[in-house]
Design a protein around this nucleic acid. Structure first.
Lengths: 205, 205
DNA sequence: TGTACATCAGTGAACGCGCGTTCACTGATGTAC
DNA sequence: TGTACATCAGTGAACGCGCGTTCACTGATGTAC
């Protein structure tokens, strides 16, 4: 706990961290500005020194999430290179990994009802991570028989959708959900089948 | 407006309808018992003659949703017969169609945080619709080369996940989302590619 | 080095609000005679 | 058919609560001389 700044030492980030923790625990709508302040050891009114209000605090959580997410996607993509196929599959895997590791960020980004266009920064950060996946799809597109090649934006959307669906439906702690396989295995297999369907033999994944 | 019962005439269902309308408009957590009562033309206290409280009202919305959903899936499956492939693909399409036509029900079912195990009836209704898709997967499984045949529960989960992802990410009115294709086309293409990946030639879809 | 002052992060009390829920009640409906 | 009564769906007022937000303030920090 480094005490910097005037009194608290970077209260702004402490509030974001508290909010992320609470969003993870109570869901994005159960989250409360007052409780975030209390968690950070501060009066609710103090929040207004750093944010315009509740919405801006959530938006900051989403923004930081998109930045981490874009980084993660970028690294996954780079690690999969030079194989376009491995790089593409890795970005799908990174989606689930991110949702697992940063559930608070994930909820703030995708389940809080916050519009991606709330602020220009948020829109830019969201576009960046989407861009990584679309670039991966573009590269992969070269290896698909040209006559039956769907637009790259389409199959990046497919992978995005399946990843999101797996997270929402199978990676949340639904007690008694009776899932006979892990979300990771499920997504891995799904992406594999999908890539085979694209006409790409997939011996290396 | 048939006036039956003592005063209002089936207030119970009127409250459910009001709740569904509000859930659709304000999201599942923005929904309010008081406002549902007002919409039905009744005092908030009157709700307690028919439901134990807010949660039970939402649960009833989810229950009715699962029943409609199961019916829709059943019909889609039947219409696709005798082709196992067509039947399977039709259930995927039905998922999106349901989310489009009954957005309030859909949100109550999948976005309200209600546990499927809240009541036995709810669990049963949810199991029924899941059962249709799994039966379709089972039938389809026979046509897959046995050496590379994943468990049916797995690829029914894949279709479920992709459908859900498409709904959540692309079928909501995200202003400026700049989607160059409709959710329906997106899902249709995605399922087609996936089925080809399963080793099933797909000339009939 | 020491003192006076300006800054501004965080306080504490208060606000108006709408929520879910409770309670004793009322009065329209259905039923028994 | 008409009257007396029981039922019970919906009323209206009230409650306690926690929310987001405001405001004048305080007191620790950084700076100027």
């Amino acid at each position: 706990m480094t005490k910097r700044g005037y009194h608290h030492g970077n209260l702004r980030q402490a509030l974001v961290d508290a909010a992320l923790h609470l969003i993870n625990e109570m869901g994005p709508t159960g989250f409360t500005l007052s409780e975030a302040a209390k968690t950070a050891g501060v009066t609710p009114a103090a929040v207004y020194r750093h944010f315009e209000g509740r919405d801006e605090l959530i938006a900051e959580c989403a923004l930081q999430g998109h930045e981490i997410f874009a980084d993660l996607m970028e690294h996954a993509y780079a690690d999969g290179q030079p194989s376009a196929l491995a790089a593409f599959a890795a970005t799908g895997r990174a989606y689930l990994a991110f949702a697992r590791k940063y559930p608070g960020h994930y909820m703030a980004m995708f389940e809080s009802g916050t519009s991606v266009n709330a602020t220009p920064e948020l829109a830019a950060a969201a576009a960046k991570s989407r861009g990584v996946l679309e670039r991966a799809a573009q590269a992969l597109s070269q290896h698909i028989p040209a006559d039956k090649r769907p637009p790259p934006a389409m199959f990046s959307a497919h992978i995005w959708a399946m990843s999101h669906g797996v997270v929402e439906l199978f990676a949340r702690s639904r007690p008694g959900a009776a899932a006979p396989f892990s979300p990771e295995d499920l997504l891995e297999a799904g992406i594999g089948i999908y890539l085979r369907g694209l006409g790409l033999i997939a011996p290396d994944i």
